[in-house]
């Protein structure tokens, strides 16, 4: 056996007992990786030490521990679930159904045990009727006992006949109590799970809130940037807008201006026909025959202007229409000014 192997094997017990520091552990695991025999020995050592856990004095877990732990464990897993593409709600629902089913099963078992136990007691009371009757009658029918004390047999039969409905009553009442207790236990379990679910929902809402806050902050930054004076803005292109047949005098200009915050369309028009009522002028960028709403403006003295932050791209035309109101997102009125961008 090599010296290294010997010194590594010395570490096996400390490794299994979790005593090695990170460096020793890494070194030992590298050795383990290459030595099947040692791996086998370590597995056996682990199983031996693991069994020592079984030798301890039995201890009953605290009441309600299962519901608390499962609610906390399953309720805490929202983030992990999302990562792995599972629905936490579905898992919680599954858990809840499982636990409810278990609670119902236990309640049923409990009820049947109580009925059996009561039957056994009744059976033995019947078998020892002549002795047992006194006990039953003392507790249940003290009055009957005094009046019927002349005949033990009579008393016994009277007590038995009398006590049966009472036993049945007791049985029903015990069953009811057991049922109620089981229901309450089930309710406690469900509440615990539900609180876990609420916690998970709260975590989700918190993360949504964080995301919203992030978005708000991003938008605020964008807004702040938009409010900043442009630095080194450059006109990408300018187009003269020409009045349509109906409005030959109208004229205008469209410019695309680029700066470090983006591309803006700047439109200015003059000698526009006067607006009436709710009418408004609307600017369109047209690409492949599809109009893109670039905003509406109202003119004064036949003059108007507008700016629009646009997606950079190859547009075919810029147009201004006279619309019945300022709310449309598709052209409804007539074309007043146009300028080709191609």
């Amino acid at each position: 056996m090599s010296e290294r192997k010997e010194s590594m094997m010395e570490l096996a017990e400390a490794y299994v007992l979790g005593e090695l520091d990170a460096t020793e552990q890494a070194e030992y695991e590298a050795f383990l990786h290459d030595d099947a025999e040692e791996r086998q020995r370590v597995t056996e050592l682990r199983d031996t030490t693991g069994m020592l856990a079984l030798a301890v004095r039995p201890a009953a877990p605290p009441t309600g521990m299962k519901a608390r732990i499962l609610a906390n464990v399953l309720g805490s897993s929202g983030a992990v679930d999302t990562q792995q593409g599972h629905e936490p709600e579905a898992l919680l629902e599954q858990a809840r159904q499982g636990i409810e089913a278990e609670a119902i099963r236990r309640a049923a078992e409990e009820r049947s045990n109580i009925i059996q136990a009561t039957d056994t007691v009744q059976g033995s009371a019947g078998a020892n009727a002549s002795q047992g009757a006194h006990v039953v009658s003392l507790s249940d029918h003290a009055q009957d006992q005094t009046t019927a004390s002349d005949s033990k047999k009579q008393l016994s039969s009277a007590t038995r006949t009398d006590s049966e409905p009472r036993n049945a009553q007791t049985r029903i009442s015990r069953s009811l109590w057991a049922g109620a207790a089981a229901l309450m236990a089930a309710a406690a379990v469900i509440l615990a799970i539900y609180s876990g679910q609420l916690r998970s929902e709260m975590n989700e809402m918190r993360s949504n809130l964080t995301a919203m806050e992030q978005r708000t902050s991003d938008m605020e930054q964008q807004l702040a940037a938009a409010n900043e004076p442009a630095v080194g803005a450059q006109v990408d292109r300018t187009v003269a807008l020409v009045g349509s047949e109906d409005d030959p005098n109208a004229s205008g200009m469209a410019a695309m201006v680029q700066d470090d915050t983006g591309t803006r369309l700047v439109v200015q028009a003059s000698d526009l026909p006067a607006l009436s009522g709710n009418e408004a002028y609307q600017v369109w960028l047209i690409k492949d025959g599809q109009p893109i709403n670039a905003g509406t403006f109202l003119s004064g003295d036949g003059k108007g202007a507008l700016t629009y932050t646009m997606e950079p791209g190859d547009y075919d035309m810029v147009a201004i229409t006279l619309e019945p109101d300022a709310e449309g997102d598709q052209p409804r009125g007539r074309m007043v000014l146009t300028g080709a961008l191609t």
Partner: peptide, 12 residues
């Protein structure tokens, strides 16, 4: 695989 029922079984 995030089977809550399996976790409960292990717990029991």
């Amino acid at each position: 695989d995030r089977d809550a029922g399996a976790l409960e079984h292990l717990y029991d």
